[in-house]
């Protein structure tokens, strides 16, 4: 199935919730609808997106929204799809899909780790790459380097690094 057919199928199933990002082949989905759309992506016989390739968190810039991009591929049908969810910066909340694709378990943890997106109903949402006592979400565009980490001063003069 090509992108237009997938879009048409999703629109008939989920109505107004689906929208397409201009000039791209990316589908935008509201966070509230995500868990049912995800289930549909996996279980619909015409879509069967059985493989979740990647979950990417991204930041649209200070003061703007935070996004999560999902890249799917269907081994059975040989088509791919990118879905994005953009959520509010202050309270980013996206339903978890780790029960549908197990691989989302760690990938969502990583997005949480770097962007602070909290995935609802995730069984074990903890930091994964950073230490558990880390402050803030370092890949956000407005992240400020802390002055102290665990009581140790963070070197500010980095000229000798070069």
């Amino acid at each position: 199935m090509d992108f237009n057919n997938i879009k048409k199928l999703l629109s008939t199933n989920h109505g107004e919730a689906i929208s397409v990002l201009e000039d791209t082949e990316i589908i935008l989905v509201p966070a509230e609808k995500w868990s049912e759309i995800a289930k549909d992506l996996k279980e619909n016989k015409d879509l069967t997106f059985d493989y979740l390739s990647c979950i990417t968190g991204y930041d649209n810039g200070a003061g703007k929204s935070i996004g999560v991009a999902y890249n799917f591929y269907s081994m059975a049908k040989k088509h791919s799809l990118e879905i994005r969810i953009e959520v509010d910066r202050e309270n980013p909340e996206v339903p978890s899909v780790e029960k549908i694709w197990r691989t989302a378990d760690w990938m969502e943890r990583e997005v949480y780790d770097m962007y602070g997106v909290s995935f609802k109903d995730h069984w074990d949402l903890r930091r994964i790459l950073l230490p558990s006592d880390w402050d803030g979400f370092p890949l956000r565009k407005d992240y400020k380097e802390p002055d102290y980490y665990n009581g140790m001063p963070v070197p500010k003069d980095k000229s000798y690094w070069e």
Partner: peptide, 8 residues
């Protein structure tokens, strides 16, 4: 295979 795929 299906479990492996599910785990990515």
């Amino acid at each position: 295979a299906d479990v492996a795929l599910n785990y990515g």
